[in-house]
């Protein structure tokens, strides 16, 4: 698996735990995780830590996922980090827009080990 350091941005601690567990249950162990409750915290973490995948929710206080993604994509040193959106706001229009903005994948909640496994199989080369 090519992703070793992952930032998870989600206001729910339960959701962050579920994401980590699903990644592990899908067979990906010994990864390093960084956790943020919103986009603002996420940006702060990224100022000091290098990650190779960002998993973000959309609806978060202070700075939601859409703004967070736009800020990442307009930042010279962060724009190439792959982003996966994991959200319960499952919508075709939104998905198309996010993908146009450079999001790698949009996965609906509830997340499952099978969804992570499928995503990793599709993207791991």
């Amino acid at each position: 698996m090519k992703y070793k350091r992952i930032l998870i941005t989600d206001d729910s601690a339960t959701s962050r735990m579920i994401i980590k567990r699903c990644i592990e249950m899908a067979g990906f162990f010994d990864l390093e995780y960084f956790e943020a409750e919103d986009g603002l915290q996420g940006l702060t973490i990224l100022d000091s830590e290098k990650v190779d995948l960002i998993i973000t929710d959309l609806k978060m206080p202070k700075m939601g996922g859409k703004t967070f993604i736009r800020k990442l994509k307009s930042s010279e040193d962060k724009k190439d980090i792959p982003i996966v959106v994991v959200s319960s706001l499952d919508n075709e229009i939104l998905e198309a827009r996010l993908k146009r903005e450079g999001v790698l994948a949009v996965i609906g909640k509830p997340l499952s080990p099978a969804k992570v496994f499928d995503f990793m199989e599709e993207t791991d080369d």
Binding site: S12, S15, K59, S87, S88, L89, D90, G108, K109, P110
Partner: peptide
């Protein structure tokens, strides 16, 4: 979080 997922 469950209610949030239910609502979406």
């Amino acid at each position: 979080e469950i209610l949030n997922v239910i609502a979406g």
